[in-house]
């Protein structure tokens, strides 16, 4: 198919699919909690509803900051989403775009002169820093083990079977990162609903909230697909099988990293979170690096 058609098609379909996954996640959560839960198309309906709502923003809102934040948030989720499904693009660029997305959240929060949003921003900032460390270690170890830098070539199947266990450590690190990045309990400290009333998003509604939620869902899907691509694609699959396999595995990952975690734990405090992420995943990452260096030293 023409490459441009593919891009446009993906550009339209992927956000919808992301929202669908959000709905799937909500269904899974509900079932774990013993409820029936909303239909999986609920997120689509929520999105449309939000678009139709009139919004009132406080009069001293910094509009340019709000826009910049939302655009960054959106782009930081949308572009990676396209990149991971098209399997095109640089790995480090991808990471930076996602970081840009986090920056978007922070800027959005800063647009309001509300203490909730400010606290939310400071906590989100510290959380982001904490899990970024793990993210960085995971990416760098992956690059060093597989020798790939782009999404086209990064694939478990590109390295000999004997090296696969090495990728276990980055995979585990990603599992740490996933709930934090997507923002679910126990580490959704930036947007703690019951404590700081959604933090950075406390004052937005209507279409802005729609964008924010859409970005969150896209981010989740992009992250899941990234994990799939890097660690869970045992053969270089292409064509229709690639898509089917991706979506299935993404769903599985969503279940394990998001739904289960979310329902099993309660929210932790910011200092506990920072301390945890600054020690446990950091140690794992350092061990991983050391192992990689040793392997290199032994000529592997």
């Amino acid at each position: 198919m023409n490459i441009y058609i593919t891009y446009i098609l993906l550009g339209v379909l992927l956000p919808l699919i992301a929202l669908l996954y959000d709905g799937i996640e909500r269904k899974m959560t509900a079932r774990i909690q013993g409820r029936v839960g909303p239909p999986i198309t609920q997120s689509w309906l929520d999105f449309i509803k939000l678009l139709t709502k009139k919004v009132k923003l406080p009069e001293d809102t910094n509009m340019l900051m709000l826009f910049t934040g939302l655009v960054l948030m959106f782009a930081g989720a949308f572009i990676p989403l396209i990149m991971v499904f098209m399997r095109k693009g640089d790995l480090i660029l991808l990471m930076y775009l996602m970081v840009g997305g986090t920056l978007g959240i922070l800027l959005t929060g800063l647009a309001f002169r509300s203490p909730y949003s400010r606290v939310g921003v400071s906590r989100e900032m510290q959380m982001a820093f904490a899990y970024e460390i793990s993210f960085i270690f995971a990416i760098v170890i992956t690059i060093m083990v597989t020798g790939c830098r782009t999404l086209e070539s990064c694939n478990v199947s590109s390295i000999p079977l004997v090296k696969w266990p090495l990728l276990l450590i980055p995979f585990i690190l990603f599992l740490f990162v996933a709930p934090a990045k997507v923002g679910v309990v126990p580490v959704d400290i930036g947007e703690a609903e019951s404590e700081i009333a959604e933090g950075p998003f406390v004052e937005i509604g209507g279409r802005y909230l729609a964008i924010a939620k859409l970005s969150k869902s896209m981010k989740m899907l992009a992250l899941m697909q990234l994990i799939t691509l890097l660690y869970l694609l045992p053969a270089d699959v292409t064509g229709i099988w690639y898509w089917i396999y991706s979506f299935v595995i993404d769903g599985v990952l969503v279940f394990f990293t998001i739904s289960v975690v979310r329902n099993a734990a309660s929210r932790i405090k910011i200092d506990q979170a920072v301390k945890f992420y600054a020690t446990v995943p950091l140690t794992i990452g350092i061990i991983g690096l050391v192992i990689v260096y040793l392997m290199r030293g032994w000529g592997m």
């Binding site: 939000l50 678009l51 139709t52 709502k53 009139k54 919004v55 009132k56 923003l57 406080p58 009069e59 001293d60 809102t61 509009m63 309001f112 002169r113 509300s114 004052e203 209507g206 279409r207 802005y208 729609a210």
Partner: peptide, 11 residues
């Protein structure tokens, strides 16, 4: 596509 926003009021 969405409804308009107004700026009014305080936090």
């Amino acid at each position: 596509l969405s409804a308009p926003a107004k700026r009014k009021g305080k936090v």
